[in-house]
Amino acid sequence: MSAVSQTPLKKIIISLVFVVLGCLLILQFINRPVIENPPVTGDLQAPQEVKAILKRACYDCHSNESNIRWYDKIAPAYWKVAEDVKKGREGLNFSVWSAMAKPEQAAKLWEAVNQIQAGAMPIKSYQIVHPGTKVSATDLLILRNYLSGTVTSKLADTSKTNALDIQYDKWAKGAEAPKTNLPVALNGIEFIPDYKNWQVVTTSDRFDNNSLRVVFGNDIAIKAIKKNHINPWPNGAIFAKVAWDRLKDANGNVKTGAFKQVEYMIKNDKKYASTAGWGFARFKTPKMLPYGKTRLFATECVNCHRPMKNNDFVFTMPVKH
């Protein structure tokens, strides 16, 4: 290349750099979100080594103690940081931990550790920019051991056996879930009374929240399992996951107690595109009361299922019958 042709090229590059820098500078002043740290009203209580890991790996987005570094504050990256903090606090905020009921706290913590174990959290892009937030295998073991230690495998107490007896009595005498005027979840999904006549996809023993579960599948789901066509699942496939109390006797025999809930996942990649292609709904107690306070309750479902995004958001590993 001759010196004559290089000069204009250089000029172009230099002016381009200035234009880009100028644009970046302007970006810093437009649409600038504010990340505030509201007061910590009831922080998570956990052993120091556990809390240290969570503080390091989670608290930037999941607490009111977000530590925003100077390099996080450069737009456009700053916009994503602000969005992550906003969404992070909405999903889980360790600074208002004590506002949650005990079972809800436990569920959140098990979910958090599962998100970490599956590699879904901390978010990859965040980890690359903040290498110190990585959760090592040793860290994960500390978290898992802590959770395992919180599980008390107690024998069934009278409140639980009574709850079952009352339910069972009514049910055996013919009390059934509504068959007309079906309960409807806020996202429009109706309770499906036929779930109990479906085939089994799997069972599950949940020691994290003291429940036994059976996952049922409708015909489309069962056929898909037979043909190994389960990633993605075909439209029309439906799962119904039933949960009962876990009642254990002195011999270590565990039976199902009171019916707690039935949860549905209905596959339709168009209709439910905004919730990962699945319609989620949960109906609680034999009255089948729809779960969720707002239409957006299914975001909670999707967030928890997100680590399974390579498995079409399904945790269940089907057992062929």
Binding site: L147, T202, S204, D205, D208, M317
Partner: peptide, 14 residues
């Protein structure tokens, strides 16, 4: 026989 659920720490499956 029960085994650990590789997709969910906190569950045992067939």
């Amino acid at each position: 026989k029960q085994k650990k659920d590789e997709h969910w720490f906190g569950a045992k499956i067939p």
